[in-house]
């Protein structure tokens, strides 16, 4: 095990790109080489050593403390190991992450898990807009992996999401599942207005919906086996982070009928 820890010296005066601070990327680097890594985006070319005190030895875990909202691209393209941010993370955390674990003990910014393909992200607080979403030039949003948000999330989560699972203990903002192609968003605290706008496939599971789009149709009350399979899978893989199982019967609302209509919103049935 073992691992490196990065203690923030002072709040950086600019946004930092910390994608290099993952166990895989730091493996094999001497501490002097790590300190020389450029993480600033301005003409100041801030290095790791300018911003952090580095301690420990390279291992499977990297810890950053305290985390602040200007630390962008945490765990971007990470493929193994664990990155712990003891505090907040900025935008694009978990961007195109392929494996390993990202634990953010505070809040995360916009575009969390954008293009994520694998691994597990747990956000102890809340997350911003476009979780699991798509950036210009991407073909899809999130394409795999699991994200658990202990708080709530902003608008347009899962935009062009194709695979993977997002669990939100709180509530989603407007337009969760916009243009969704597949995967699952499970919002225990319910969905904000207009979930599933132009969604083709995929599943939105939640306790309530603030306002349904008129292009979603009620398919009735059903005991869907796939919900049970999903619950058991999440319990087996996430343990205490898994959502509470849905009741046996759910109301199945299909849409968006403005596209191919193979997506669905599942709500507890009366």
């Amino acid at each position: 095990m073992g691992g490196l820890s990065f203690r923030l010296k002072a709040a950086p005066g600019e946004r930092l790109d910390i994608r290099a601070l993952t166990p895989g990327r730091l493996r094999g680097l001497a501490n002097a080489e790590i300190s020389a890594l450029v993480i600033g985006g301005s003409k100041r070319h801030l290095t790791v050593g300018d911003v952090f005190e580095v301690a420990g030895d390279a291992g499977d875990t990297v810890t950053i403390q305290p985390g602040v909202a200007t630390l962008d691209f945490a765990a971007a393209e990470m493929d193994s190991g664990t990155l712990i941010i003891d505090g907040n993370a900025g935008a694009y955390a978990g961007r195109k992450m392929r494996g390993g674990n990202l634990e953010v003990r505070g809040n995360a910014g916009n575009y969390l898990a954008s293009g994520m393909a694998g691994g597990l992200i747990h956000i102890g607080g809340s997350a911003g807009d476009n979780l699991g979403g798509i950036l210009a030039g991407d073909r899809f949003g999130m394409i795999g992996g699991t994200v658990v948000i202990s708080g709530s999330i902003g608008a347009r989560a899962g935009d062009k999401m194709r695979r993977g699972t997002v669990i939100v203990k709180g509530k989603t903002g407007e337009g969760a599942g916009t243009r969704m192609i597949g995967g699952t968003i499970w919002a225990e605290g319910g969905f904000g207005p207009a979930p599933g706008y132009m969604m083709r496939r995929g599943t939105l599971i939640g306790s309530t919906v603030e306002r349904l789009l008129p292009t979603f149709v009620d398919c009735g009350r059903h005991d869907l086996l796939i919900v049970r399979i999903l619950s058991r899978h999440l319990k087996a893989t996430l343990g205490d982070l898994a959502p509470k199982p849905m009741p046996l019967f759910v109301q199945r609302i299909a849409g968006d009928m403005a596209t191919i209509g193979k997506g669905e919103i599942l709500l507890p049935a009366d």
């Binding site: 795999g144 695979r163 699972t165 597949g182 699952t184 496939r201 599943t203 796939i226 399979i229 999903l230 899978h233 893989t237 193979k262």
Partner: peptide, 12 residues
């Protein structure tokens, strides 16, 4: 009308 759900390494 069939749809798929991929969970872990399994597709249902």
């Amino acid at each position: 009308f069939q749809t798929a759900k991929k969970l872990g390494d399994s597709r249902y």
